[in-house]
């Protein structure tokens, strides 16, 4: 069995991989116990499994774990905590921007990645950045408001 070393939230983590095609999502949830990223579709369509790889949002449900050796992975747990939330997370809390919250991981991670590139996005830019992230409860307006607020621009 091969082993792969991943850099996750700043720490090197080595995991055994029997099937190199195993998607990264299963490794971070089950092997590393980081449950923030969610299985939503396994097809890269909904965004619930989003993580950051070298700062870019990546859908961890479709990419094999073997592709991530040596890459810098950030999960939502690494972004911030309830005690010390990232500004996007703090804005989601302030805007009460979740209902069931199953999609929240993808919204927060994609929002955080957007702010890295565009620190003060407008509402239209946020909607565009989140166009491929699905929410079923209808929390869209609050999610957009939260990301805009985190950036500090006027919607």
């Amino acid at each position: 069995m091969a082993s792969i070393t991943l850099t996750v939230n700043g720490s090197a983590r080595t995991i055994d991989v029997r099937d190199p095609e195993k998607p990264l999502l299963y490794a971070i949830r089950n092997d590393l116990g980081l449950k923030g990223a969610k299985y939503g579709c396994g097809l890269g369509q909904c965004g619930s499994c989003t993580i950051l790889v070298d700062g870019e949002p990546v859908r961890s449900c479709t990419v094999p774990v073997s592709a991530f050796a040596g890459k810098k992975i950030t999960t939502i747990e690494g972004l911030g905590s309830p005690e010390k939330p990232h500004k996007v997370q703090a804005a989601f809390i302030a805007e009460q921007a979740a209902q069931c919250g199953y999609c929240t991981n993808g919204m927060v991670m994609t929002g955080a990645a957007l702010l890295e590139k565009n620190p003060k996005p407008t509402a239209a830019q946020v909607k565009d950045a989140l166009a491929q992230n699905l929410c079923r409860c209808g929390t869209h307006e609050r999610i957009v408001a939260a990301v805009v607020k985190a950036g500090g621009a006027r919607g």
Binding site: K35, G36, I76, E77, G80, S81, P82, P85, A97
Partner: peptide, 9 residues
């Protein structure tokens, strides 16, 4: 529930 939901906990 929202702080834990927003931070993946």
């Amino acid at each position: 529930d929202i702080p834990a939901k927003a931070t993946g906990r």
